[in-house]
Write a protein that binds this DNA or RNA. Sequence first.
DNA 1: GCGTAACCCTACGCACGAGTAGGTATGCTC
DNA 2: GAGCATACCTACTCGTGCGTAGGGTTACGC
Lengths: 212, 212
Amino acid sequence: MSSVPAFKRLPRAVREQQMLDAAVKVFSRRGFHAASMDEIAEDAGISKPMVYAYLGTKEELFVACLHREGTRMMQAIAGAAAPDLPADERLWRGLRAFFGFVGAHRDGWAVLYRQARGEQPFAGELATMRARLVEVVAGMLDHALRAEGREIAAVDLEVVAYALVGATESLADWLADHPEADPEKTATRMMNVAWLGAAQLLHGVVWRPAAD
Amino acid sequence: MSSVPAFKRLPRAVREQQMLDAAVKVFSRRGFHAASMDEIAEDAGISKPMVYAYLGTKEELFVACLHREGTRMMQAIAGAAAPDLPADERLWRGLRAFFGFVGAHRDGWAVLYRQARGEQPFAGELATMRARLVEVVAGMLDHALRAEGREIAAVDLEVVAYALVGATESLADWLADHPEADPEKTATRMMNVAWLGAAQLLHGVVWRPAAD
DNA sequence: GCGTAACCCTACGCACGAGTAGGTATGCTC
DNA sequence: GAGCATACCTACTCGTGCGTAGGGTTACGC
């Protein structure tokens, strides 16, 4: 009596992706705690024990979401910013790829990402990703600096890179909240804030507080 | 038999502050959801029904925390950045006040703030505060621009301001995570990132993507 | 000294949601 | 077509934590 087979008995790999899709969706719109495993299961068109069997606990599930989305984003960026280009061009392409990605996954990534910043269990996971980005940006700055024959203390470089990454994340939030906004244009604006300032630094222009 | 009166029967205003102190502390270290009203009450040296009687639901309590801390911060900034100063000086004093505040409330404010970004119910509350900041910064930029005889579309101005505020928030996070870091120095670094770039924009220097 | 209003408590009800026990059906291999 | 693994389900347990009912005690006005 297998008259209506169609939507059943799929291989594990497929179901896992469906579950992750559903999880990203639900976590995004509800937040980690407010999201229930029941809703995720229902949204994935499957029953709860299956989710536990394949992806484990709620926390593990969330981490899996972060991992998948994070990896996709990193790949998008890495694929765009070839390491043999000049610093400004790399920065530009990286930013464009980043905002393009966020624009294409507005409710997915950006909200998931915002969640992770707050909850202790995931802050570490996220910090790792951010650290990789900061390292890349700091490396770019350092490289450009050496080309100019200058040097800056590593800490300063890291903090500047951190600020740039932070500004970028904020604009990503902004982009996620403004569906009408254009990712490309946002990238251009970020480039203006970031690169014009950074270029000054690279040329040895420094702002100092007045002695008061 | 009132031999040990000391720590009992305090007036409402005092108890409310104690409760808020406790709530900020617990929300900060546990996060909104993981924090329990029982723990907050215990930490405030009072019983749970009192908290409900004075400050209302858990959500209302959290909002009250946000409000108190946010107001304090805004006052700290407003008190430092007099509106009749030149833009760069205002920016500098504002930043110094901001990082000073965060430095003095590392585990209080910064963590509370991070929480609020993620949870939908509070995102709005926080957005309002951020919007006020963005408005101030954008106003400063606009003012400085007009003094130079230039103009920029309001949207662009807002986005730039948003990016600057975002970068500042990120450095605040960084500061909160690095207890050894100096707020003053952090403010200087932020000033370098922000002002050097902004000053370029003010002078009409603009970065544009190459036609490819 | 007596009422009344504030302050404060010890319990509990109750819903919600994470995680599981235990069982059924379907395809695949030989 | 028997055996086995994999996909899948319904229906529970059980802890946790929000919010409250209902009652006690200290101050303060008169």
